Each structure stands twice: as structure tokens, then as C-alpha cells.
Computed example of a mutant assay.
Amino acid sequence: MKKIEMTEAIILAKKSAKMSWEALAEKVGLSTTFVTSACLGMNSLKKEPAEKLCEVLGLDEEVAITLQEYPNKTWDFTIPQDPLVYRLYEVVGVYGETIKEIVGEKFGDGIMSAIDFSLDIYKEENPLGDRVVITMNGKFLPYKSW
């Protein structure tokens, strides 16, 4: 089974179960963001959570095995067309250099890990319009001299 087939099977089963990503992640025992990313093929799960996810959704062992396979983290390099994904692309385009400058001042020359990393998405209720709060938390990795 390919990752795309795995993702399609998971989304169909999730839809059939009328289950949210948050509810699924809670049953699996991992964060909503990480479980969703693994189900979309961009991360992998260890054996126990992969099997638990498949048990919850009534999916077969082939899906569990594919969930455990290392992903090929590639994506389409064209400008995203989905409005929400495009706005995130735009945020990085507009604020990416600013983020780099501020991280450089605070930490030095290096990068934020996307391996030792977490991403959380929250809803902040606001009378002027609800807010999307996205928190990225990654270990700082300084560049080494040799």
C-alpha cells in the first residue's frame, strides 16, 4: 500500500466514523497535529499507535504497516491554491526574513529544528472574530564551525 492509498483509506474511515482529528488523536494518545500529519503521510507512527488508530477506525493491518513506514517528505513546490494554505505560504513570504533576523539575534546563527518540534493549533474565542493561534516549538540548532 502506498502512503496516498493509506491516507485515502483513513480519511474515508474517519468520515464514516464521524470522528474529528482531535477525537482520533485522543484515542491514539498522541497530539492532534502529529496524528493528522502521520495520517496525511508526512510523518510515521510507531507500531502501537498505528495499530490503535486502525483499531479505532476499523482499518486493516496493511494501513497500520504503512503508517509505520518512513515518509518521503516532499510537497508540491507550486504556489498553493487552497486559501488557508496560501495564507500560511504568504505569512512565511512576508515574515520569514523577519523571523530569521529575530531568531538570529536571540539565538545566534542556526535553524529551528523540524525534527525536535511540535505544532499546536488553538481556537481563541474573540468577540471581534475568533482567532487562529498556531504555535511552532522547535529546538534551536546552531550551525557548527569546523
Rank of each mutant, 00 (worst) to 15 (best):
I121D: 02
T33N: 08
G58M: 00
E61Y: 05
L67M: 04
A114N: 07
A9W: 11
E105F: 06
E26G: 11
S31I: 03
A64N: 06
E5Y: 10
V132M: 14
S16T: 09
T135D: 04
I10G: 01
K123E: 15
M112R: 06
A13F: 05
D82V: 01
Y143C: 01
K52G: 04
Y143R: 11
E61P: 02
E62W: 06
E61L: 10
I134T: 05
P49Q: 06
T32A: 08
G108V: 08
A25H: 05
K144W: 04
P71A: 01
K27M: 12
I134Y: 00
I121T: 12
E97L: 03
K100Y: 05
E97R: 10
K2F: 08
L12W: 00
P83F: 06
S44Q: 13
I134G: 04
T98S: 00
Y89V: 04
G110C: 03
E105K: 11
A17H: 14
L119S: 13
L59K: 02
V35M: 07
M42C: 03
A50F: 07
A9Y: 02
I99V: 12
V85Y: 03
E62Q: 14
K3G: 09
I99N: 00
L141A: 03
K100H: 02
L59T: 05
L119Q: 07
G129V: 10
V63C: 07
V91G: 10
E61W: 07
L53R: 12
T7I: 10
L141Y: 01
L119F: 15
K139R: 08
V91S: 13
I65L: 15
F77Y: 01
G129A: 10
N126V: 07
S118M: 07
T7V: 05
L30D: 13
Y143A: 03
K139H: 00
L12R: 10
Y70T: 14
F117A: 07
D60H: 00
I99E: 03
D76Y: 00
Y122E: 15
L45Q: 03
L119E: 12
G108K: 06
K47L: 12
G108D: 09
D120E: 14
D76W: 00
L88D: 00
S37H: 04
I102Q: 15
A23T: 15
T7Y: 08
P142H: 11
I134S: 01
F34E: 11
P142L: 12
A64M: 09
T7M: 14
I111F: 08
V103R: 09
P80Y: 01
T33C: 04
I65G: 04
P142T: 11
L119N: 11
E48M: 01
E22R: 14
N72G: 06
V92F: 06
K139I: 03
I134W: 05
G93H: 14
F34Y: 15
E55F: 15
F107D: 03
F34K: 12
E69Y: 01
